[in-house]
Every structure is written in C-alpha cells, then in structure tokens.
Amino acid sequence: MGESLFQVFFLIFSGAAVFATFALYTRQPLLVAYIALGILIGPHGTKLITEVHLISEIAHIGIIFLLFLLGLDMQPKALFAVLKQATNVGIISSIVFAIGGYGIGWVFGFSHVENIIIGIAMMFSSTIIGIKLLPTTVLHHKHAGELMVGLLLFQDFIAILCLMFLLSGDLGQVDVQKLGQTLVALPLLGVSSWAFVKYILLYLIARFDRIHEFIFLLAIGWCLGVAEAAAFVGLSAEIGAFIAGVCLATSPISQYIAISLKPLRDFFLILFFFSLGAQLNITLLSDVIIASIVLAIAMLVIKPVTFGLLLKSHSEKASLSWDIGLRLGQISEFSLLIAFVATQGEMIGEKASTLIQAAAIITFIVSSYLVIFNLPNPVAVKDHLRRD
C-alpha cells in the first residue's frame, strides 16, 4: 500500500464525515455517502487511495459484527411470531423479485450463473432505509411496524441462507463434498455453541455482569471465536458470527451487548461500504449503466406493487399495504454483500457486480426521496409528514 494506514484512515473517516454531513442535509442514507466517497478517492477515481485490499480485509470484520448483532436480535419466540404472519408474503415476493432480476440480467446478456446472483440480490429490501425512515411510534406500537419488521426479518433469514449457499461452493457446479461437510458442520456448531453459552458463557456473564469492560470483551471474543471455529470447519466466519448471536439472544444481557457493539460495528461498516465504492470500477459503469437504470426502475416499480397487492390479499388495508410497499421498494444493503461474496468467490464478473451495486445505489436514493416526500417519516421536508 502506497499510503500509510494512518493516512488511509484519515482520508476515509474525515472524508466520510464531510460526505455524511452532506447526505444528512440532502436526506440521503449514510451508506450512500460512504460508497460515493470510495468511488471518488479510490483507485478508479482520484486515486488518493490506490490499494483497497487491506481495507477490505479490515472491513470484513464489520460484516461479521453485523451478522452477530442480527443474531442477537433474533429472539426465537418473537421471531416465530412475526415470521408466521410475514412468511407467505415474503416467499411469494422474493420469488417475484428473483425472477425479475434474472429476466433483466438475461435480456442484457449476462450468463446463467450471473443472472441467478442478480436475481438473488434483488430479493431483499433495505433494513436501514425501511427502519430509519419509519416513525418510532409506528415501529414500536403499531401493526405496520410489526409487519415491516416481520418482512425484513424474513428477508434477512433468506439472505443468511443464500450466503450459506454462496459460501458452500460454486453455483452451477456445487462441490457436493463441501456442501455435505457444511450440512454436517452447521448443526454441530450450533449445538456446541448453544451448550457453551448455556453452561459457561451465561455463568461468566452473571458472575461479572457489573464489569462492563469484561462483558464487552467477552462478547467480542465470543463472536470472533465462533466465527473462527466456523471457518475452521468449512463454513464461513459470517455464518459463525450469526450462530454466536442467536445462541446468546436469550440472555437478559443480549440487548446491552447489542447496544455496546453497535459503534464498533458502525466503525467497520463505514470501511466496508467505502471499500465497496472504491472497488466499483467506474470504467465499467458505461457498459452497464443502461442495464443498471432498467434494473433499478424495475425494482422501484415491481417491489411496491408486489408488496401492496400481496398484503392487500392478506386482508390488510389498502392504505397500509401501499405504505409498506413503498417503504420497502428498494434493493438491500444485503444485495451489496451478496455481490461482494459472489465476486470474491469468482461466481460473477466485475460487470455483473457493478450492475448490482449501481442499481442498489440508484434505488437507495430514489426510494429515500419517495418516502421522504410522500410518507410520514422522521426527516420529512414537509412539516405535516414529519413524525418522530
């Protein structure tokens, strides 16, 4: 790396602070600001940072913490309650979005495997945009909030399964031995992690719960320990982190751990989204810009309509159905992660990865504006729509 690590961190975080300020004033999601910064100062932009491999490696920790925190929020009883209501809508909508993504990829000449990945990436909506632009009173106290959380949790669960599949072998030529090893290792890791939490970790937490520094350290050690164990037995660090979170979710102190680790997670996620932008080859953008726009517009139309019709068919009020549909009418940050994993595994080429990233960014921006100017939200420009 031509730059020192200090210089790289200075450019990333000082630049991110400036871009984030601009994003907040223009009502944009912060992750778009981080991606834009990566595009601007990365190796395909002004080349202030020319080597992003190390940053990508460091940023990988952010994804591990993200999945760990996702697992911490998945209380089994609450999870089953909301998923029961959202399952049918989630399954049908995911199939529709995947078919739409595959079809558009096929029209623009991508390979069969690349079209599968494009279709998978289209299945999910953004948790960040969906939750952040939902008024707090709706999120915690109304049926709309419960329904949105249920749908997003169901999509997160599908995303985890998709990541497991992508990390288990090549699409189109699955390594049967490796996939079999995964299917055996997964329940073994889950059971052993649950037993360790029940008989050792919970005892340590109860014994030293007043020493916050120890709890913080224990949580990080547990997350990274199970992640490393998962990688050792042929799974992935991300899957291990998710298992670590789920096993710890029943602990009374799980929410304290989640709150404590969020700043650490955000630190690494800034690096992750920056590295995504820095690796976005804008020289290839001209080759996929039309496809990206078509894919983005298709999702911005298909998702609200599909959610609206499905929810209405499940006896939801028309106004509520279209409200939720519009709020979930974008591609997900999970789509960026899937593109990243598929590219690292050489399942898709740079053009397909650029297509997914560009389409996701377009939908982030357009969807945010649609919600901000038309639905109640905490950052609305119009006074009558502003709801905290």
Rank of each mutant, 00 (worst) to 15 (best):
I39P: 10
A360Y: 01
I243Y: 00
I259D: 15
F273D: 07
L284R: 02
Q177I: 10
P378Y: 06
A33P: 04
G169H: 05
S315A: 15
A20R: 00
F108V: 09
F9P: 13
H140T: 05
A185E: 02
G130K: 00
F124A: 13
A227L: 07
F65S: 05
H112T: 09
S260N: 14
V379F: 12
W194V: 09
R327G: 03
I361Q: 05
V381E: 14
D156W: 05
F267S: 07
P76H: 08
V174L: 14
L385C: 01
G225P: 08
I39M: 12
L186Q: 07
H141F: 00
I348Y: 04
I297H: 14
I356L: 04
S4E: 10
S315T: 10
W222N: 04
L188E: 03
T343G: 15
G145I: 02
I58E: 01
I356T: 01
H143G: 02
S335Q: 02
T250Q: 06
F268V: 08
I205T: 01
A86T: 00
L218Y: 03
I215M: 11
Q255E: 13
E238D: 00
G103M: 03
L189T: 04
V18G: 03
K142A: 02
F108W: 09
Y203V: 11
S321P: 07
L179Y: 12
A318W: 07
A78Q: 10
M1W: 13
A360K: 04
L66Y: 12
G15C: 06
I365P: 08
V138M: 07
G325W: 06
D73M: 10
P378C: 05
L284E: 10
L79W: 04
V52Q: 08
W322F: 15
G180F: 12
G38W: 13
I129N: 03
L201K: 01
R207G: 05
A206Y: 08
L166M: 12
V366Y: 14
F214W: 08
P378R: 01
K84M: 00
A59F: 12
N115H: 04
A298P: 11
L269K: 07
N88E: 04
T46V: 15
S125P: 02
T26E: 09
G130C: 08
I293W: 11
W194R: 14
S236I: 06
L269V: 12
L271M: 15
L326Q: 02
A298L: 09
E228S: 14
I116L: 13
G349R: 09
H141W: 02
L188G: 15
W322Y: 15
L167N: 11
S168I: 03
W222Y: 12
I104R: 07
L309K: 09
G42I: 07
K317N: 15
I297P: 15
G42Q: 12
I338Y: 14
N374C: 13
Q330W: 00
F97D: 01
F10Y: 15
G245A: 09
F307C: 05
F373L: 15
Y199G: 10
V341T: 13
E57N: 14
M299C: 06
I91Y: 02
E146C: 06
Q177S: 14
F124S: 13
S332I: 12
A98F: 13
V197P: 01
W106Y: 13
I128D: 05
F110W: 11
R27M: 11
F110I: 10
L370W: 08
G42M: 10
V32P: 04
G225C: 14
F267P: 05
I131E: 03
L375S: 05
